[in-house]
Design a protein around this nucleic acid. Structure first.
Length: 517
RNA sequence: GGCCCCGUCGUCUAGAGGCCUAGGACACAGCCCUUUCACGGCUGCGACACGGGUUCGAAUCCCGUCGGGGUCACCA
């Protein structure tokens, strides 16, 4: 049985790179008929683990990445928080100590640092002298007598090589003599990440460790622990990084300001910020931007689009398939089709997947998705009146491909529901204050008022007849009509807008605009 | 700096010696369509990091150089 795990530390937000890793673990497990486990790496014991974890679990759920065992649902191998498994780690550290694979070290951090600096100065690789290694009870007593306290260090081999067969990297060799005697347990008894990680992977019976490339150089010490404990080795697969837009640097939340200078990133960001603002959301740029998954949920992206895009970030099936349903992804995903080079995150390409999936979404689904946005903006009541629902369906149909994310509905529908028309000032000046515009608009109003029926076809025909009679071209008036009735320079097709508005409201708005000119 | 990984269009990638005067997608530019916006159609721009080998033949194999990245914690 294949078992993979994703082990986030509770940071308070779900990073796009982290999701990609989780996705590959999940895809692989599901494709193999295996299990996907969530484990929380909180050995650092921060205060509000629960609140820092919630957004991460929520984000994964939103994307449809589900787990078989984890902190919220438990499982046969629980608990799934490392902070609650310290006893296991301590027991392992004790075994390592007993078997001579680790030792008590009484050096102070300053002494270690001094040795490291000396080595650096002499340009030789640093290796701890083991000067304060206490091999016997006598030595322990002596060092302790000096007021020193002990940490547990790994006693790494100082000769030979480790050969790692990575599923993605292939064969990778490391010199044992270059591996440090890492601390695995602090003086206060708390255990560190590498020990914890390895012990848990074994306890959870993880068969495939699929993680980001940054862990590749940590692998030797982890394998050392595994072997010392007599545990079987999992299969390793180190994924290439998700890199910054337009660069090869690892994507990080820290460098937001740099990304904002990237045109594509900035564009996607601004679009999202505008929607957040229309919703009245209070957002901080540190937690609400295209690096954070929550951004996409708030703005109204489709999980399928994100999953599809992310799957292709470092993986491909062949030279033609681009669009995959979840099941197809699970069916076709394989680790040997994962590339080795880092892949940079391209917000515009994600956008194009979003475009594709939104376009294919059933109208009823779109409505379901978009209605809450209008309700949150206070434009439609909750529960929604049938008339509003009907109107919204018409607006969505009329907007067609213009709606890329659910939040876009705000810009395309607000003027249908808002009690008062608000004008785009530039458009108002340009289209309505234009000489002759008011006069034409007033005459057009009479044409509309005289119409026997009120639908798109009639409106279009009547408008063209009006143009002929007036001896003008459509471009001479259509913009004025749009601004006068919707307040905006852009929107769904004009006849659609008028049809949805209805005769009474259309005439009312034209009159109001005429008065405002 | 040591160690490790990586290196095909701006980006994601196809390519496992001849199918490659290197294919697709996104982006970009231009044109067409058009009442705005968006869509759509067409066209264009655009890459095998470099240098040596091996071979009849190399993007594909080998070596070197250069470049990029990661990692070197009593963080995870």
């Amino acid at each position: 049985m294949v078992r993979t795990r994703f082990a986030p530390s509770p940071t308070g937000y779900l990073h796009i790179g982290g999701v990609r890793t989780a996705l590959f673990c999940w895809l692989f497990a599901r494709g193999q008929g295996g299990e996907f486990i969530l484990r929380i790496d909180d050995t650092d014991q921060q205060r509000n683990v629960e609140s820092a974890l919630a957004p991460i679990l929520h984000g994964l759920k939103w994307l449809g990445i589900d787990w078989d065992e984890g902190p919220d649902i438990g499982g046969p191998y629980g608990p799934y928080y490392q902070s609650q498994r310290q006893d296991n780690y301590r027991a392992a550290a004790a075994r390592l100590l007993a078997s001579g694979h680790a030792y008590l070290d009484y050096a102070t951090p300053e002494e270690i640092a001094a040795e490291r600096e000396a080595a650096q100065k002499e340009k030789r690789p640093f290796l701890y002298s083991r000067k304060y290694m206490a091999a016997t009870p006598e030595q322990q007593a002596e060092f302790a007598g000096q007021g020193r306290s002990a940490v547990v260090r790994l006693k790494m081999p100082r000769e030979g090589k480790l050969v790692l067969d990575d599923l993605i990297r292939g064969r990778v060799e490391f010199d044992w003599a270059l591996e440090q005697d890492h601390v695995i347990q602090r003086a206060d008894g708390s255990c560190l990440y590498h020990l914890a990680s390895v012990v848990d992977d074994n306890d959870f019976e993880i068969t495939h460790v699929i993680r980001a490339e940054e862990h590749l150089s940590n692998t030797p010490r982890q394998i050392f622990i595994l072997q010392a404990l007599g545990y079987p080795l999992p299969v390793y697969a180190h994924l290439p990084f998700v890199a910054e837009p337009g660069s090869k640097n690892k994507l990080s939340k820290r460098k937001l300001d740099t990304y904002l200078k990237n045109r594509d990133f900035a564009q996607v960001n601004e679009h999202g910020q505008a929607i957040a603002q229309a919703l009245g959301l209070e957002v901080a740029k540190e937690t609400f931007n295209p690096v954070v998954v929550d951004f996409y949920e708030q703005v109204g992206y489709l999980p399928d689009a994100i999953i599809n895009y992310l799957a292709l970030l470092g993986w491909s099936l062949d030279d033609q398939r681009e669009f995959f349903t979840r099941d197809e992804l699970i069916q076709s995903f394989s680790l040997d089709r994962v590339g080795k080079a880092g892949a940079s995150f391209d917000p515009k390409k994600l956008w194009s997947f979003e475009d594709h999936y939104m376009r294919e979404l059933e109208p009823t689904k779109k409505l379901e998705l978009m209605l809450p946005y209008l309700q949150r903006a206070g434009l439609i009541a909750d529960p929604a009146p049938a008339a509003d629902l009907d109107k919204l369906a018409q607006i969505i149909a009329a907007s067609g491909d213009r709606l890329k994310v659910a939040g876009d509905i705000l810009a395309y529908a607000d003027f249908f529901f808002a009690p008062e028309l608000t004008y785009d000032q530039d458009a108002f000046e340009k289209r309505l204050r234009k000489p002759g515009a008011a006069d034409l608009l007033a005459r057009y109003r009479e044409t509309l008022a005289a119409l026997a029926t009120w639908d798109v076809a009639t409106l279009e025909q009547a408008t063209h007849e009006f143009l002929n009679a007036a001896g003008i071209k459509i471009g001479d008036i259509i913009h004025a009509i749009r601004v006068a009735t919707t307040g905006k320079a852009v929107g769904p097709g004009l006849y659609d807008c008028l049809a949805i508005l209805g005769r009474e409201e259309t005439l009312r708005r034209i009159d109001q605009s005429l008065a405002a000119i």
